[in-house]
């Protein structure tokens, strides 16, 4: 049994326990909350039965959304490079990255800002950048950048929402499956109401033992073409927020920026125990649905979800395509 599946069982155990659990702790004051880390200990939902928090578990990726842009000119400089990264506890993957991370950094700008963008290719093969938030000629901006070379241009985000960015070099499926994607938030000129904000990028990994590094994994192209992922993750590491639940307050508005990088699987995004008070379809504030249980985030698309957790307790979030949740696309909120 592979490491993914062991960890997936952990996720499922946590999910099952969380579904059954009723938490009795009292909410704390807002002042005390600010001092605390964003993670919550999973011990209160595992009852010690699930092997959570083992020494092989990688540090979780901070899911909190960055602050809105403070300047009308936003400089973004990203480097493409290879990196060996954990995609599940004990599983190292030979990734292709933006800035050495999978997903790449969350970029946040405001409608009407000028984005001054530079891509530097420090990898061994050509890469490129495709911003779904931009309206620009791909033949000028999304072209291949050779190893050691760079590209620089400016663009103005004019449509608010949460967007995918990704490497667009052929074969695109390979560049995305290897980790070259991230989320870009375009805030509307008139800001959304305050909320506790998180960013989740769902993606798949298709793995086989690496040919040059013992113990590491690399892309299995045949599994990719056969749509048979080994692991599915929120923010690049399967099950990470089941093992490191995200701490929130009962009753407060939670805003989730969810992007599906794929390359192949749609995310049927759902928070167990909650109903979305608002869903900004394709993340445009003008198109809001109200009172929705589950919404498909298409591959290459993004949605903004707002909800609140009515009472203290543990609330899993999943793709409700449950084979994918079993492979790691599951996390937890702990409301206090």
């Amino acid at each position: 049994m592979s490491a993914y599946h062991l960890r997936s069982l952990t996720g499922l155990v946590l999910l099952a326990v969380a579904l059954a659990a009723a938490c009795t702790s009292q909410p704390r004051s807002a002042a005390a909350r600010r001092e605390e880390p964003w993670t919550a200990s999973p011990a209160d939902v595992s009852h010690g039965e699930a092997p959570v928090g083992t020494s092989t578990a990688p540090a979780p990726v901070d899911p909190r959304a960055p602050a809105p842009s403070a300047s009308r000119l936003v400089t973004i400089r990203l480097e493409t490079r290879e990196a060996k990264l954990a995609i599940a506890p004990g599983v190292l993957y030979e990734a292709w990255t933006f800035d050495g991370r999978v997903p790449g950094p969350v970029v946040r700008v405001t409608e009407g800002d000028t984005v001054d963008f530079t891509l530097v290719n420090r990898a061994m093969m050509p890469h490129s950048m495709d911003f779904h938030a931009a309206q620009i000629a791909p033949s000028r901006a999304y072209v291949n950048v050779m190893p050691g070379d760079s590209i620089h241009y400016r663009w103005v985000p004019q449509v608010p929402g949460v967007f995918l960015y990704h490497c667009g070099t052929a074969p695109v499926a390979m560049h995305i499956a290897n980790g070259m994607y991230g989320a870009l938030i375009v805030d509307p000129a008139r800001p959304l109401p305050p909320a506790r904000e998180f960013v989740f990028v769902q993606s798949e990994f298709y793995t086989k033992p690496a040919s040059d590094t013992a113990g590491a994994q690399q892309l299995d192209w045949e599994k990719l073409l056969g749509l048979a992922p080994d692991a599915i993750a929120f923010n690049g590491i399967a099950n990470q927020y089941a093992e490191h639940p995200i701490r929130v307050m009962a009753g407060e508005t939670i805003r989730l920026y969810v992007v599906d990088a794929g390359p192949n699987r749609v995310s049927a995004f759902h928070v167990v125990g909650a109903i979305f008070s608002k869903v900004y379809v394709d993340a445009v504030p003008a198109h809001a649905w109200e009172g929705v249980q589950t919404v498909d985030v298409p591959v290459g698309g993004g949605m903004i979800f707002e909800t609140h957790l009515v009472e203290p307790g543990t609330y899993p979030f999943v793709t409700h395509a449950f084979a994918d949740a079993t492979k790691g696309a599951v996390g937890m909120f702990v409301a206090r």
């Binding site: 061994m124 093969m125 050509p126 050779m146 190893p147 074969p171 390979m174 892309l219 192209w221 045949e222 073409l225």
Partner: peptide, 14 residues
């Protein structure tokens, strides 16, 4: 090619 065309190994391998 001007670089090692590693992505082709998997695609043409398939």
């Amino acid at each position: 090619a001007p670089f090692e065309p590693a992505p082709l190994y998997a695609v043409l391998g398939g």
